[in-house]
Amino acid sequence: MPLTSKDDALIESIIKRYPRSRSAIMPLLHLAQARDGYVTPESIEVIAEKLALETAEVNAVATFYTQYKRKPVGEYHVGICTNTLCAVMGGDAIFEAIKEHLGVENDEVTSDGKVSVEHIECNAACDYAPVVMVNWEFYDNQTVQSTKDLVDSCRAGKPIPPTRGPNELPTWKANSEVLAGINDGKAGEGVAAGEATLLGLKIAKGQR
């Protein structure tokens, strides 16, 4: 369902965050994805109207950024890092194996609409390589087998929880709201830091 009048108050509150309204384009596009799973032409029109812009101006922004999708992705969008470091440490093998396992190509969705796959660039978790993201939550130190288990769990509707993230993996739409700047109250869930993050501290404290 595209952005509707029910979203008016929320849209207004997002616009009010900024000194100038145009800055609200990006969070509003994230919000559009929270409603439809991707950026629809209808949502583009709503955003353009709210910000007093041409639809072409909103489209220009939406098409620049890879996180804004122009067609539906899965309920669970799997990003496999294939930038150099993750790639050589296993990301390439994981990416190939998962495409074959699911019977999809890059940027495609399984026929049940549950899982889509994309190869992604460096996701700032290199000390946990190879890294896989689902709906932009961290799955650290992956192997071919662990990622197969992960996507299977997503298809079964009982996704394995993230390594460093909330207790349960949110859906793509739910996390798109988080990206729009809406607090879902889950910040307190999950670890403060993973093992690799703490390695130097533990050595400094003589614990390793």
Binding site: Q67, A124, N135, W136, F138, P166, V178, L179, K186, A187
Partner: peptide, 12 residues
């Protein structure tokens, strides 16, 4: 935008 849980923590 690709780090949902970090975004949660900063927002909170």
């Amino acid at each position: 935008g690709e780090v949902a849980h970090v975004i949660r923590r900063v927002q909170q």
